[in-house]
């Protein structure tokens, strides 16, 4: 068959490339609602060693100006890793509601 035997398609006006997504928080929604327990930092006990910050899978332990830490409750999933990794027992997991 010759090339002429094929219908020539009109050039598409719009091009759809592979769907590109961009890094942004909340790609699975407000994951803070998944929590059954919430981590509460006792700033008196916290020494600012940052181990909780290092181990948190969710990037929801935040470094504070004073060298200590806070939790981003909008997205924290309540896994409790921050509490287990704290050598100073400065994080307590408190039941939600």
């Amino acid at each position: 068959m010759t090339a002429e035997a094929y219908p020539v398609l009109e050039e598409p006006k719009t091009f759809f490339l592979a769907p590109l997504s961009k890094p942004a928080p909340g790609s699975a929604g407000k994951t803070g609602t998944w929590r059954t327990h919430k981590p509460v930092v006792n700033l008196e006990k916290c020494t600012g060693c940052l181990l909780c910050w290092l181990y948190c899978p969710e990037n929801t332990v935040i470094k504070l100006e004073n060298g200590k830490v806070a939790i981003d409750y909008e997205y924290c999933k309540g896994c409790g890793i921050c509490a287990t990794s704290c050598p100073f027992d400065a994080i307590e997991m408190v039941p939600e509601v």
Binding site: P23, A24, P25, G26, S27, A28, G29, K30, T31, W34, C49, L50, L51, W53, L54, P57, E58, N59, T60, I62, K63, G67, D72, E74, Y75, C76, K77, G78, C79, G80, I81
Partner: peptide
């Protein structure tokens, strides 16, 4: 750890299971 900037090394609120 103190020198590492407080970046979003992963984006919070992703679809991974807790832990």
């Amino acid at each position: 750890l103190k020198k590492l900037p407080d970046h979003k090394y992963v984006m919070p609120g992703n679809a991974a299971c807790p832990g």
